[in-house]
Amino acid sequence: MEVTNNQRPAYMEFEGFSKEENEELNKAGIILGTLEQIKGWARSNSLWPLTFATACCGIEMMATGGADYDFDRFGVIFRASPRQADCVIVAGTITKKMAPVVRRLYDQMPEPKWVIAMGSCATAGGPYVRAYSVVKGVDQIIPVDVYIPGCPPSPPALMYGVNKLQEKIRLEAKGKKVR
């Protein structure tokens, strides 16, 4: 499976122009640059994640969406279909049986899309790293933008991670690539 990040180049890509024209446009940044920043601001403030909860981290994700730690105030509404989702929060252990499903869901999501790996199982295999049927980190299958450590990460940690992703979206809209 290809895991290159070839969907998101370091410079902003405008449709319909060649690579040289794109670079030219990137330098002249007053009107188009501001437009990109507005788009970045809009995208970051209404992130719609795909409901993708595998294991225990899923319960913490649900709790974050619940009444005490409200996710809705960040504009985050969980969508069931990948075609309508902006990002996917991979919460829980990914097993080798589940890996093709994750890849297919990621491919079904429209651009622009981001991935948050929540919890230590999705980051690197977690406590099950020595198991025979566990994929050691979801970044072996799909490119990940933000990693949230924890087992499970508490709702404030998840919100911090989502905020980090929002910052990343806004920074990338300004043309700076965030690692």
């Binding site: 080798k96 049986k97 020595r130 198991a131 025979y132 049927s133 050691k136």
Partner: peptide
């Protein structure tokens, strides 16, 4: 519990974890 194409039976004592 495992994929149909899986080789081997993990809970055996001589199973070697392959990645």
């Amino acid at each position: 519990l495992l994929q149909d194409e899986w080789n081997g039976h993990p809970l055996r004592k001589d199973y070697v974890v392959r990645d």
